[in-house]
Write a protein that binds this DNA or RNA. Structure first.
Length: 761
DNA sequence: AGCACGCCGACT
DNA sequence: GTCGGCGTGCTC
């Protein structure tokens, strides 16, 4: 009480509103309060509508100041205060400020990421319950002969439903259950004066009776759904439960099928019983109807989903229900991370190694790292789960920064698949397929079992090369090689998506000796058609599933057992499992083995483990064949014989032996201008300004993309900063951010700074 | 990001 | 003579 009194007496003199706007500028803008409004109730975090240039926009109040740097006559008054009370709580604001600083992204843009589109446009955040409508029949509707509606079967069915339902009132969710497209029919019935909207009292009455029903059903639900935990699961649940009131990071390292989800469900129950909310983050692909069903069976009426597939209104409903604490559990993708919560008590992040937790453009951030920071700010535990944890998380666990919980027992009796290296040195290959592999494929098909082939390259061939002079087809706007697509008869850039026709002769030497080099899924598909004629083959990659719903169609075909040979990219590794697959082959493991970056080996290993999980679920254990020219590669051998965990350890040990820290951090400064000299001068100035010598471990690479060519009307260079020390990098970036604006204005350079969302600690 | 101002080629 | 191209600069 005394707190608020002190606040308002202070703010009397603080009558300048410093706001952030959703623009790519780092500075804040100052406004006067709306005319005739007392600033006492203005608290940072509220939305304001302000005049901005010629338009008006929604801005976010950051602080109240005594005076502005600008001359008073330049200040405009804000138009209105949108929120009586801030929608973001103190912890949420702290998190957004942290993210803006840590990822060097403008504060207003970070705020934008925290609000659904409707609220960004200034819509009120009133609870959507008020919008829940209910309908009942009019007197005419009660009496009308249904035969007169014989030409509108939907409408007559609705009328019948109203008549049969006591007390004759149906609300939106009832109607949705009756018919997905109820709205059109209801609208025309209202138009015919057969149906009318109820008064709001009637709606409230219905809601009470509904919640009664839910409570009667609940105990029975729990009995049916709750599964007994094994010892490891019990330990995990008990350990996290004991820490429910403090910040701690737990790494739940559980092999496929070890029952991680059951641990999540028990912990959610624990948090709910303490009247706290829970945030569950999952990779995009995992947000399936099955997951939703499993959660809502256990926690009926308590869940909100939040992901890119929702409409603007659905997003707002979910956001507000969670923000106000009406719903208790938010399940969503990385875009759900910043949703304010009334009383958050636990964060769960499933498949923590998954790369979709990193936002790679615009506001680049790592949802995993930011979730950990959210846990720290809110003083609550964060649980990271994975069968193949990222190296950084394993490292953090080893450094005791995370507390590791292991689930090593499979719930069912399924035997793990057998991994085998197949040496293809000096072996004849047909589109990358060796004779022993082809023999195994033939054998498996003959037994009417399914085969899954993996190659992480779509298209026909990754390059078009001139046999006469060595010319290679490259993209004009990127530095990447163009990929040959045979079905669409074109060359396509997998970076920017640009297409062009396949030239008939070499543009450099005019020889008609252009040959496709390398392997892609299209090419293998073609070869397999020739080798196994009449076999039903399904190819799954971004090209074959571009049409909406076609992925689902193919997956069903596979699950029904109609598809015998399955060929595909990354897509195969995630989400779905195929019961009748007994042979998995990875056509080229070597490509992942020798990257400059250890992350390519890490991803390869994760992929092998995940894709192996697709096989051997049937009564018969599956086999996994890895084609390689390096059967003695220590990493491969470790992975095959000792598993992912040992593999990860040996990468970390290798780096330690080479005196390298486990990770490095990077940032990219991009600059562009109309003249190349301008770009260079700008970068030189920036470099001169930075005291790089202070940071011995900071590596500066650049300008990176040479030679400098004009692209899209501008010359652009980028400079890469790499460091083993995140703090050093942060300091350099701070120095830059403080000076770069003025340098750029003088030199007319456009610049942007991307901080790769690598790690937190 | 939008949006306006400004300075050079094809149009009635 | 203008319409409009996008390069450049600004928004409290």
């Amino acid at each position: 009480m005394s707190n608020t009194a002190a606040k308002s007496s202070n703010s009397a003199s603080h009558s300048i509103l410093s706001v952030a706007v959703s623009l790519p500028v780092f500075r804040l803008f100052d406004y006067l309060p709306p005319t005739g409004v007392c600033t006492d109730n203005l608290i940072p975090g509220v939305r304001l509508e302000v005049p901005f240039g010629k338009t008006k926009i929604i801005a976010y109040l950051i602080e109240l100041k005594e005076e502005s740097q600008l001359e008073p006559d330049k200040l405009k008054p804000a138009l209105r205060i949108v929120d009586a009370a801030p929608l973001l709580h103190g912890y949420d604001l702290q998190l957004l400020h942290w993210a803006s600083r840590y990822y060097h992204h403008p504060l207003g843009e970070v705020f934008k990421a925290a609000f659904p589109a409707n609220l960004r446009k200034g819509m009120s955040a009133a609870l959507p319950e008020a919008k829940q409508s209910a309908y009942k029949l009019t007197a005419l509707g009660e009496l009308i002969d249904l035969d007169t509606l014989s030409r509108s079967p939907k409408q007559s069915r609705l009328i019948l439903a109203f008549r049969q339902h006591y007390p004759g009132i149906l609300n939106t969710s009832d109607l949705r259950a009756l018919d997905k497209n109820w709205r059109a029919a209801v609208t025309s019935l209202i138009g015919k004066c057969l149906l009318e909207k109820c008064a709001s009292e009637a709606v409230a009455a219905r809601e009470i009776s509904e919640s009664d029903v839910a409570e009667i059903e609940q105990p029975e639900n729990n009995n049916r759904n709750s599964i007994l935990l094994n010892n490891q699961q019990q330990t995990a649940v008990a350990t996290v439960t004991a820490a429910l009131n403090q910040f701690a990071v737990f790494l739940l390292n559980g092999i496929t099928g070890s029952g991680k989800t059951e641990v999540y469900l028990h912990l959610i129950q624990e948090a709910l019983s303490r009247d706290r909310q829970v945030l569950v983050l999952v990779p995009e692909i995992n947000l399936t109807p099955q997951l939703e069903q499993r959660f809502s069976q256990r926690f009926p009426g308590k869940i909100c989903l939040f992901h890119s597939g929702l409409t603007a209104n659905q997003r707002q409903n979910a956001w507000v229900n969670i923000q106000q604490g009406v719903r208790k559990i938010l399940i969503g993708t990385r875009s759900a991370l910043f949703t304010p919560m009334h009383n958050i008590g636990l964060i769960i992040l499933d498949e923590e190694h998954d790369t979709s937790f990193k936002q790679q453009e615009g506001f680049r951030f790592s949802a995993r790292d930011t979730a950990i920071m959210r846990g720290k700010i809110s003083g609550i535990p964060v649980l990271l789960g994975s069968a193949t944890p990222s190296l950084e998380s394993l490292y953090n666990a080893r450094q005791q920064r995370y507390h590791e919980l292991v689930l090593s027992e499979r719930a069912g009796a399924a035997t793990p698949p057998m991994l085998r290296l197949l040496d293809i040195r000096n072996k004849k290959l047909d589109s990358g397929l060796s004779a022993p592999l082809l023999a195994e494929i033939g054998k498996t098909l003959a037994q009417h079992e399914q085969v899954l082939l993996f190659l992480n390259r779509r298209g026909f061939a990754p390059t078009l090369i001139c046999h006469g002079c060595g010319w290679v087809a490259r993209c004009r706007s990127c530095d990447a090689n163009l990929v040959i697509h045979s079905r669409d008869r074109c060359l396509r850039c997998h970076h920017c998506g640009k297409e062009q026709a396949i030239p008939a002769s070499c543009p450099a030497c005019a020889a008609k000796e252009l040959v496709p080099a390398g392997l892609g899924t299209e090419r293998i598909e073609q070869t397999l058609h020739g080798l196994f004629p009449g076999t039903r083959l399904v190819r799954l990659d971004r090209d074959s599933t571009r049409q909406k719903g076609s992925l689902e169609k193919y997956l069903e075909e596979i699950n029904r057992g109609e598809a015998e040979l399955i060929l595909g990219t990354q897509m195969l590794a995630k989400g779905h499992h195929f019961p009748n697959v007994t042979l998995v082959a990875i056509i080229d493991v070597d490509s992942g083995l020798f990257g400059i970056d250890y992350r390519s080996s890490e991803r390869l290993a994760q992929l092998i483990v995940q894709i192996s999980g697709r096989a051997g679920r049937a009564a018969k254990p599956g086999q996994v064949i890895l084609q390689t020219r390096h059967p003695d590669h220590p990493l491969l051998k470790t992975l095959i014989s000792n598993g992912y965990r040992q593999f990860a350890n040996s990468i970390l040990a290798e780096r330690q032996a080479a005196n390298l820290p486990p990770f490095s951090y990077q940032a990219v400064l991009r600059a562009q201008a109309s003249k190349p000299e301008t770009v260079l001068a700008f970068l030189q100035n920036v470099m001169a300004l930075l005291n790089l010598k202070k940071y011995p471990h900071l590596l500066m690479l650049g300008p990176v993309s040479a030679p400098m060519e004009k692209r899209a009307g501008a010359y652009r260079y980028q400079v890469l900063f790499q460091s083993n020390n995140r703090a050093h990098l942060q300091k350099i970036l701070d120095e830059m951010a403080g000076n770069i604006d003025s340098l750029a204005t003088v030199k007319k350079v456009r610049w942007s700074l991307d901080v790769d969302p690598v790690d937190l600690f």
